[in-house]
Simulated scan of single mutants.
Amino acid sequence: MEAKEAVAKTCVKSRIINQSAITYDVFVMVVAAPEIAAIARPGQFVHIRLTDALEPLLRRPFSIADCDSSEGTLTLIYRVVGRGTALMSGLKSGHTLDCMGPLGNGFTLSGQRPLLVGGGMGLAPLLMLAKTFCSCSSTLLMGGRNAQELFWPNIYRDVCNNIYITSDDGSLGHRGFTVDLLPGLLQEKKFDVVYACGPHVMLKSVAEVAQKYHIPCQVSLEEYMACGVGACLSCTCAGTSGKRNKVCTDGPVFWTEEVVW
């Protein structure tokens, strides 16, 4: 297990280049943040505050879905879940955001034959990871509640060579959960590392299956983060070392053996 490096970060005023709706409550936003884009790695996130509003007071964390260091841009894919994201979804090109990042420790790019497993909005941070592995034959196993939520195949179509889809109600792909297909994929012994992001219950199941087949697995945890820099302790989780891990600074990406499930 590699030691985690100190994460460089900066705080900048980022101009929105464009924003569009993917579904009625999911949006994709591209912002200009060259200082952050120059050093961002897959699995890291940014902490954003709306510059023209006093409410919400606290910043909100957003996974970096994509990054173009040559253009100096970041892409965020997010769902409207409260007042902050609702206000953010109404912003237009030219508006600015107070953007701090890149934050957290990202994925360790240790595999040559990676399997990516994502559920719901957990597929957002896996996109940049998949693009980083473009020289490999990366495979994606994705899941969602229904076909309406599974707009992701269009986003990943030119990124991953193989895509397996599950939906809870069977309206798209295999009826069931992502973990239903995971044992069959790992039995083929084509993969040397698993990367996963999604709901906690999904990650716990993925960790158990990966351990059964002796395949290293990294997970990106989704926790509420108030400060994003390890000061408030609102995002801690139990670690196997006996200490509480700070998801915002020790993570959000962990090897599965670092986490108490």
Rank of each mutant, 00 (worst) to 15 (best):
L185G: 06
N161Y: 09
W255R: 00
L127V: 03
G122V: 04
L140S: 08
Y156F: 15
K212E: 13
I48F: 02
V193W: 12
K9N: 12
L54E: 15
I77R: 02
A130R: 06
L140P: 05
C136I: 00
V253Y: 05
V159R: 06
C248Q: 01
M88R: 01
G230W: 01
D66R: 07
F254R: 00
L58A: 10
Y156L: 11
G82V: 03
V81K: 12
L103C: 11
C99P: 01
A6N: 11
K246A: 10
C235T: 06
I155Y: 11
G120R: 07
T256H: 13
G106I: 14
V219Y: 12
M100W: 02
F133T: 09
S241L: 11
T236D: 05
P61V: 02
C248E: 01
G106P: 13
F151A: 01
V247R: 03
E188N: 13
M202K: 02
S110A: 13
A238T: 09
V206C: 09
K190I: 09
V80W: 03
V219A: 11
R60P: 02
M29E: 08
G230F: 03
P102I: 05
V253Q: 07
R41E: 06
C160P: 04
V206D: 06
Q44W: 00
P56R: 04
F107T: 05
A124G: 08
L141H: 11
L54S: 15
G228A: 00
C248I: 03
D180N: 11
K204Q: 14
I163C: 07
I165F: 03
L74Y: 11
E257A: 08
R145L: 01
F62T: 06
G94R: 07
G94H: 07
L91Y: 12
K246F: 14
V30A: 02
N105I: 15
L109Q: 10
A40L: 09
D66Q: 11
M142F: 01
C136T: 09
T75G: 04
N154S: 15
C217M: 13
L91N: 07
W255V: 00
N245A: 15
P183K: 09
R49K: 14
C217W: 13
I36A: 02
V247C: 12
R41W: 00
G228S: 02
D52H: 12
D158R: 14
M225N: 01
P61T: 03
G104R: 01
A207M: 11
P102R: 05
G144I: 05
L150S: 02
K131A: 15
K13G: 03
D52M: 06
L57Y: 13
E35W: 07
A231E: 11
A226V: 10
E258I: 14
N161T: 10
G118K: 03
T240H: 14
K190W: 10
H174N: 07
T96I: 05
A6Y: 10
A38E: 07
M29W: 07
E149K: 08
G120F: 09
D180I: 05
T10C: 04
E71G: 13
D66E: 14
R175G: 00
T166Q: 06
L57T: 15
G120E: 05
S220H: 05
